[in-house]
Design a binder for these strands. Structure first.
Length: 837
DNA sequence: ACTAGCCACTTTTTT
DNA sequence: AGTGGCTAGT
């Protein structure tokens, strides 16, 4: 075959393959077609990295290495070249002769492992793969680090001395186990708080440091003690046949390190390894990737060093900074075009992040257009801030935006409170993502503990949780005795309980214990005969848990309802998995699930969440609230540059969530942990180019400021020095005052914490607030709140509407209103920002 | 074994 | 401020 024909074919083939991925830009295509060897994709926020990942996998499966191959396949003929040419012009399906020549060593989906951090991300990947590739997409192993590890460990945990059916301990179980360790070692938790020990041990595992290593070279007495705790804790978990979250990674790495055959098995199984959110990986996770990809080195990691926000959990940004050293000869591709945000928003993000030192450096750009300026609102209090957020949402709704296009982001969960209160009163539907997980509720954890004991007889910790829940006259002393006997003999507690008559130490408790063992046996029997969800329902009766809650009044009812939800999730699980469903499987799913996974972007509600939880999401309208020194950046981070840089990255993440509009706000005073604090506005605001901002100040904040100004010029005849010493304000009076609306030029020299010193200052504030505060905007004033059916009303958020129905309730009235734009809503007459027209 | 009252805690946390 | 966990008392 002639050289030119071959070359012609190769060229056409490249064109053909490229045409199959037409929507990608050139850099994205590079990332998709670079299939062999280590690759680092530095993907800026909104640069379409998931698309790249999906297309990369699709390319591997459909065409393998064909795009890059220089050598034409055997069997190229003029006819095939002609057919290919035609195919390029007129789309269609390649003939059976041509089809195999289009691919070069295509990859079997089974050989691809794609690792993400969240179930949600893994699910999204799977969905997009199967919609792009059909069945083949479903065979790609896309999962989270943790579930990939569980899968590996379920096969071979015995090699490490753990049962295959090991239990997964969540933070709560971990804490209980740790308490027992403290007791057995006689450690005072005042010296090292349990939480501190837990996080220290977690970090050790993240760094692949074994108890033995930790014991061998302690840095100081504290580290030595932690090593001892670590050692005892680890032994206890091994004895219980349990692993905590950190163990899942740590033990998998151990397994792969220690067992050559296991390692080789997975290396040949996973010939292509892709890792998402690489900036958030720990040393252990790096090791895992390194071990899996060690032989073939077909490893592709995607990440953004500027979005690394989990350093406090053991993520090490060095993984991404040093990737080229870890994998010699690695190619680096930067995705810098952003498809998400306006250039104003992007510029603001760049302004902030460029103040960080530790970064690879990249600058996002977009051709989305400039968009509107960012609105910075300075409120006087957190209530005002919340009111402002609600008002802006109302304006946007009237312009045709949907509730679900709005997200409120904050630094810590506690900040959701005032916003919630205001939203509830104003009748704005909202949903909080994060906070307490459903599966963290006491009653749910109890039932799960019962299920765990049935699944794993060795799980002493779970057993101890439920042995006397509901009360069965098995007190703490009895439990402790049984536990001591068990650990003395090295057997599970249930074995001791089974033969409790043989142990004199258990004395009078024998009757109660035997009764409990009877319950356990019944559970096992029911478990073996009934389907999973029926088993759980039975469990409630056999254990007496239902009876206990039924006697517990109203609260018991709510708890029972929660358990009802659990039962239905068991049923859903059983239906989904069919014959594969197992108790272990369900428990595993529950243990590895998180709240953000259940975030449903279809429901039309405003979402409230932390900036951490918002990573990977995007919204048209984003509010970042509480931009105050001590809140964001948080108090804890203010004195360490590294921590501060992490806060700044978090700010970058927050800003880059916004597609169309970004709203920033701060409150001059805020109730925190029961005390009112006055905070200076966040330094991150000062880092944004003033030209990108429109500054607005609440009337109250302005009045307060004027009072302060007067005080200052009277008392000192000048400006007080900047007592924070941490940073110097840039002045907002450079903001052009030409923008429309109610913009007010702020002189931040006069705002914030400075006034907290001095009694007169305090009284000046009081005087100002009495004069200025018109009782906030939350409750509507008297006079016109006696609504009648048919009244035309105006709601601050939903606009105009007609009253449909009036229902008096204790001290207030529910008013049902049909709004022109927003549909029918129910509001409380006394609280809704509502007036007659 | 149970309960009342006191005290300590409250950054973020994909798993 | 609000909650959850623990101690001391019954």
């Amino acid at each position: 075959m002639s050289q030119s024909l071959d070359n012609k074919f190769l060229e056409l083939r490249r064109n053909y393959i490229a045409s199959q991925f037409g929507k990608l830009n050139d850099v994205q295509k590079q990332a998709v077609f670079y299939t062999q060897g280590p690759l680092l994709i530095l993907a800026g926020a909104g640069s379409g990295k998931t698309t790249v990942l999906v297309n990369r996998i699709a390319n591997l499966i459909r065409f393998g290495n064909a795009y890059q191959t220089e050598k034409a396949p055997f069997g190229v003929s003029q006819e095939l070249v002609d057919e290919l040419e035609l195919l390029l012009r007129e789309k269609g399906t390649p003939s059976p002769e041509l089809a195999p020549l289009l691919a070069e060593r295509p990859v079997w989906p089974y050989h691809i492992l794609a690792i993400t951090f969240t179930n949600k991300a893994a699910g999204e990947l799977k969905n997009r793969l199967s919609s792009m590739l059909g069945e083949a997409g479903q065979d790609v192993h896309a999962s989270t680090f943790h579930s990939a590890c569980v899968r590996i460990l379920r096969r071979d945990a015995e090699r490490l001395g753990y049962p295959k059916s090991f239990t997964i301990y969540d933070t709560d179980d971990q804490q209980r186990a740790m308490k027992e360790v403290y007791k057995s070692l006689n450690v005072d938790d005042k010296f090292i708080p349990i939480k501190a020990a837990m996080s220290n041990i977690g970090r050790l595992k993240d760094k692949m440091i074994s108890p033995k290593q930790a014991l061998a070279a302690p840095a100081d007495t504290r580290a030595g003690l932690i090593a001892k705790i670590y050692d005892a804790y680890q032994k206890r978990l091994l004895h219980a046949g349990a692993m905590d979250f950190d163990d899942l990674i740590y033990q998998t790495v151990r397994l792969l390190q220690e067992c050559e055959d296991v390692r080789e098995f997975y290396q040949s199984r996973y010939q292509y390894v892709l890792v998402d959110e690489y900036q958030d990986t720990s040393v252990a996770q790096f090791q895992l990737v390194y071990l899996l990809a060690g032989a073939h080195r077909n490893v592709c990691v995607v990440g953004d060093d500027d979005q690394s926000i989990y350093r406090f959990r053991g993520a090490t940004i060095e993984n991404i900074l040093n990737f080229e050293e870890h994998f010699q000869g690695a190619k680096v591709i930067r995705l810098e075009q952003n498809y998400r945000s306006t250039s104003t928003i992007l510029d603001a993000a760049n302004c902030v992040i460029q103040n960080n030192q530790a970064r690879k450096g990249k600058t996002l750009w977009t051709d989305n257009g400039q968009g509107d300026k960012i609105l910075y609102y300075e409120a006087d209090s957190e209530m005002e801030e919340s009111a402002h957020v609600a008002t802006v949402i109302g304006q946007n709704l009237r312009k045709g935006a949907k509730l679900r296009d709005h997200a409120i982001l904050y630094r810590m969960n506690a900040q959701s409170g005032p916003i919630e209160t205001y939203f509830a009163r104003a009748g704005i539907p909202y949903k909080i993502v994060g906070g307490q997980r459903f599966y963290d509720r006491k009653e749910i954890k109890d039932i799960i503990a019962y299920m765990a004991v049935v699944a794993n007889r060795q799980d002493d910790l779970r057993l101890r949780r439920i042995i006397n829940e509901p009360a069965r006259k098995i007190g703490a002393t009895t439990v402790q005795n049984a536990a001591d006997i068990a650990s003395g003999l090295g057997i599970p507690m249930l074995d001791v309980i089974e033969h409790c008559g043989e142990y004199p130490a258990l004395g009078r408790a024998v009757g109660a214990l035997q009764k409990f063992y009877g319950i356990y046996e019944q559970l096992i029997k029911v478990y073996e005969t009934l389907p999973l969800d029926a088993f759980v329902t039975e469990l409630l009766d056999i254990t007496g848990y239902r009876a206990m809650l039924e006697l517990a009044g109203e609260e018991g009812q709510t708890r029972l309802e929660n358990i009802g939800q659990l039962v239905s999730s068991v049923k859903t699980y059983a239906d989904q998995r069919g014959p594969e469903a197992s108790l272990e499987g369900f428990l595993e799913e529950v243990a590895l699930i998180s709240d953000i996974d259940s975030y449903d972007d279809q429901a039309d509600v405003v979402v409230l969440m932390t900036m951490h939880a918002a990573k990977g999401l995007e919204f048209d309208y984003v509010f970042i609230v509480g931009l105050e020194e001590g809140i964001f950046p948080s108090e804890m981070s203010r004195y360490s540059n590294e921590d501060l840089e992490e806060e700044r990255r978090l700010c970058y993440v927050g800003i880059t969530r916004a597609r169309k509009e970004l709203y920033l706000s701060s409150a001059n005073s805020r109730m925190m942990f029961g005390q009112t604090k006055r905070n200076k506005h966040s330094r991150f605001l000062d880092e944004i180019d003033p030209d990108l901002l429109t500054v607005e100040q609440s009337p109250v904040a302005r009045q307060m400021q004027m009072v302060r100004q007067r005080y200052q010029s009277d008392a000192r005849g000048g400006y007080p020095s900047n007592n924070s010493g941490v940073y110097l304000n840039r002045e907002y009076n450079r903001v052009p005052a030409n923008s429309t609306g109610v913009n007010i030029t702020i002189k931040p020299r006069q705002t914030g914490t400075r006034l907290t010193s001095g009694i007169q200052a305090g009284s000046a504030i009081q005087a100002g607030s009495v004069a200025a505060r018109p009782q906030q905007q939350v409750p509507s004033r008297d006079g016109d709140k006696n609504f009648r059916v048919g009244d035309l009303v105006e709601h601050k958020v939903f606009g105009r509407g007609v009253v449909q129905k009036i229902t008096p309730v204790a001290g207030d009235t529910i008013v049902e209103i049909r709004f022109e734009k927003a549909g029918v809503k129910k509001t409380m007459a006394n609280y809704a920002p509502l007036k007659k027209v």
